[in-house]
Nucleic acid binder design. Structure first.
Length: 370
DNA sequence: AAAACGTCCAACCGCCACTCC
DNA sequence: CGGAGTGGCGGTTGGACGTTT
């Protein structure tokens, strides 16, 4: 008996799937559903273990899988979520429609991890390597901020230059990538922002809030588009995470001292493009022309921009701590005492001029983002 | 041309959590 | 309560493929 069982086990096939096996598995699941994975192979006429069938279906044969290169948006989503969630690939995959956890995991290990390391960021902790809190560590942190800014700009530019249709490879029917079916998918419009518990959206909104704080008008934090709405969402508001990354299109920095037009679009600048602190006024004026003002103005703007990125870093840390609270309390429809204390007023507080506006402005998190 | 090396990703493995009896 | 069965997850690996020497 034992012998025959061992014998049966030895028959189970391993390794790459053949086209015939794929077809058998797909045909069976399309007709019957997968049911019990354990019993599926025998019913479908496959000499594989159930686990292998499950994996093949989930990671490759499922029709709703997007294949091909990861977009810059997806890259940044993964990086941000990894910073928040660690290597919980299945949780991260929830925020990347049509991507499998396995694919995201592979992409992380082969591309993103290396990229972060190259930038001087520890891919595990998402903190600068050798971070002593100042000096070199601060420089690396600075670089990280610029890299994030660069990614956002690239994503925006890519989106602008993209046609209204994109080609995705889905549902490849064999192991040969060349045989993948090509389909046209309409680009989905940026999702509206319901007050749902969406960590990523909150992260991005806080990012955009903090980055616009130097604009000529005071930063205001609207209620239903930000993390506070998310944090205070009722159970009814909790929806399955369907977020696709949506970068703010409107991030720009205007400095009254120079020009109110969009002279600078956030993300198009990085340290290598900014004038060095040693640059002379004459050189600045010469290179910038008369449009942007004199050298002092330009240098002032550059330094303001630099400090903007540093300030942003501090805000991000506060937000990170906050999101951890959400993860701990939010999914259970609970609010931590800290959240109730610090955020309730922010969300429920009125607009400027109303009775609790002042109270709202005094909350630590409002201060942090304004 | 071919060997060495590097990259990528599908698939496997082991572990853990959950359910059922 | 505890053991067996099952599903799901994350870490790791092996081999195909591309690039460099």
């Amino acid at each position: 008996m034992v012998k025959s069982m061992l014998g049966a086990k030895a028959v189970l096939k391993k390794g790459p799937w053949t086209r015939e096996e794929d077809e058998k598995l797909m045909a069976y699941i399309q007709q019957h559903g997968h049911g019990s994975w354990c019993s599926l192979p025998a019913k479908a006429g496959l000499e594989r273990c159930g686990k292998s069938c499950r994996l093949r279906w989930i990671n490759y044969l499922r029709p709703d899988i997007k294949r091909g290169n990861f977009s810059l948006q997806e890259d940044q989503t993964i990086i941000q979520l990894h910073a928040l969630l660690g290597s919980r690939w299945s949780a991260i995959a929830l925020h990347l429609p049509k991507r499998t956890d396995n694919e995201i995991k592979n992409h992380w290990h082969t591309h993103l991890k290396k990229r972060l390391t190259k930038m001087g960021i520890d891919p595990t902790t998402h903190k600068p390597i050798n971070d002593a809190g100042h000096g070199h560590g601060a420089n690396l942190n600075h670089m990280a901020q610029w890299e994030t800014a660069r990614l956002q700009a690239e994503a925006r530019l890519a989106r602008r230059s993209k046609p209204r249709f994109q080609i995705n490879q889905i549902g490849s029917f064999s192991s040969q990538p060349s045989t993948a079916r090509l389909v046209f998918n309409k680009i989905t419009p940026p999702p509206s922002l319901p007050p749902c518990l969406d960590v990523l959206t909150a992260w991005q909104n806080s990012w955009s809030s903090s980055m616009t704080s130097k604009s000529s008008t005071p930063t205001t934090i609207t209620t239903d588009e930000n993390m506070y709405a998310m944090m205070l969402a009722t159970d009814d508001d909790l929806k399955p995470p369907t977020s696709t990354l949506c970068f703010p299109d409107t991030i720009s920095l205007n400095y009254n001292s120079i020009d109110n037009s969009n002279m600078t679009t956030f993300g198009l600048i990085n340290d290598s493009l900014l004038p060095s602190p040693n640059c002379t006024n004459a050189a600045l004026e010469n290179s910038a022309g008369s449009l942007l003002g004199d050298g002092d103005d330009i240098m002032e703007a550059v330094e303001a921009f630099r400090s903007e990125v540093y300030n942003c870093n501090n805000s991000m840390q506060g937000l990170h701590n906050n999101i951890e609270d959400v993860l701990m309390y939010g999914f259970n429809n609970e609010k931590s005492p800290q959240q109730q204390n610090q955020l309730g007023v922010v969300f429920n507080g009125g607009e400027e001029g109303s009775t609790n506006f002042e109270e709202k402005c005094n909350t630590p998190f409002y201060k942090a983002f304004s």
